[in-house]
Nucleic acid binder design. Structure first.
Lengths: 170, 170
DNA sequence: CGTGCTGGTTCGGTGACTGAACCACAACGT
DNA sequence: ACGTTGTGGTTCAGTCACCGAACCAGCACG
C-alpha cells in the first residue's frame, strides 16, 4: 500500500498481496486490463475513476511489475506475466459476486475459447475438463447482462462484445 | 462499500463483490475467521486494527451475511455459508502473494487434511486429485514461515499451529 | 498556427482511517 | 456490598486519502 502504515501481519501472503492490489479501484483496473483496456483515457472513462487516483494506481502497478508502461505512438499499459497471474484472483471474486449478487445469472460468462465450455469454480472447462489458461479464455455477456449499459461509451461497448482475454480493444 | 459513491460498473460482479469485501482490512478479517478467530478482541489484537474500524467492518459483514453474530456467554462472529464461499478468493490471493512476495516459500502451507497433500493452484489435492472442501482443509506453517512472529500473543500462536479451517482457536 | 487529443498534474473540499482514551455491562473475588 | 478484571464496543481530534473539476504540456493534423 501507499499508506505509511502497512498491514502488520508479515507472515501472511494475503496481507502482502493486499498491499499491492488491495486498494480501492486497483483490482478493477487489473480486470479492465484483462478485458483489453490499455490506455489511460480508456481506464478513466470506463471506470469513472478520478484521474489523479488512476495515475497513482497505474504508477503503483507498474512499480510492482503488475503492468508495464509501453511508450509507442500512444502510451499503453499491459499486464506482465506477474499481472496475468492475478486472473485466478479476479475470477474467484467475480464468481462470488455472481453467486450472491446476480439473481439473474452472471452478467459475464467465461468460456473456454476452444470448445465454448463454461468454466467451473476451479477454473476448468466443464466440457473438456482441462484447466483453461488465460490466453484461451473468452468473456462474453452472460444471462444476467443488463443491456441498459450499452451505448454509453465505445470502451464499454467494446468490452461487452465477446472477446478473448488480453486482446486489445478497438 | 460504505462510501457514498459506489463503484459505477453495475455490470461486473467483481465491482459488486468489492463493495462488500474490497475495503481495507475486510478480507484480512475474513481470513482470520477461516483460521478460527471468532472474538472481537482476538481480531483486534491479531490484526492490530483500530477498534472503531473493526466494529464497522464486522457490522458490514454481518449485514451482508458473510459473518453471523452469535450472542452466547461471549459474542462470537462466525462465517456463514456465504462467507465460506469466499475461501477461493482468499486462497487465490494468498497463492499470488506466495508466488511473488515470499522468496523463502509460502509462510503457510495449505493441505488436504485427509491425506496431507498440498493444494494445487486450482484448489485440488495434489495427492488424491480431488477438489478439497473447506472443512477438509488444513493450514500449517510453511517453509517460508518467519519464526520471529511467534510468542508475541496467544492468538497469533494459536493461528500458527497446524489446524483445520473454521476450527475455533483456544 | 489554431484545434483537438492524450496523458497526465494541481487544488480545494469532503470523508475515511488512525490511535488513544473512554464507557457500559457482566462475572468474579473477598 | 464493592472493587477488579475482561469484553465489546463508542467517542474524538488529527491526519491522510479520495473526489471532481479545472488546468497544463506535448504532439499531430489541417
Amino acid at each position: 500500500m501507499t499508506l505509511p502504515s502497512t498491514y502488520a501481519d508479515r507472515n501472511c501472503s494475503l496481507a502482502r498481496a493486499l498491499e499491492v492490489v488491495g486498494e480501492r479501484w486497483t483490482l478493477l483496473i487489473v480486470r479492465d486490463a484483462f478485458f483489453g483496456v490499455r490506455r489511460f483515457g480508456d481506464f478513466a472513462t470506463q471506470l469513472k475513476i478520478p484521474r489523479a487516483v488512476l495515475a497513482d494506481r497505474l504508477k503503483l502497478l507498474v512499480r510492482e511489475g503488475v503492468l508495464s508502461r509501453e511508450e509507442g505512438p500512444a502510451v499503453e499499459y499491459r499486464l506482465t506475466p506477474k499481472g496475468v497471474e492475478l486472473w485466478p484472483v479476479v475470477r474467484a471474486m467475480m464468481t462470488w459476486g455472481d453467486a450472491f449478487y446476480s439473481p439473474g445469472g452472471a452478467p459475464r460468462s467465461i468460456r473456454h475459447d476452444h470448445d465454448g465450455g463454461l468454466l467451473d469454480p476451479g477454473g476448468r472447462c466443464e466440457r473438456c475438463g482441462e484447466p483453461v489458461p488465460v490466453a484461451e479464455t473468452r468473456v462474453e455477456p452472460g444471462p444476467g447482462f443488463d443491456a441498459a449499459d450499452e451505448g454509453h461509451d465505445p470502451v464499454s461497448d467494446a468490452i461487452n462484445t465477446p472477446r478473448r482475454l488480453l486482446d486489445p480493444i478497438g
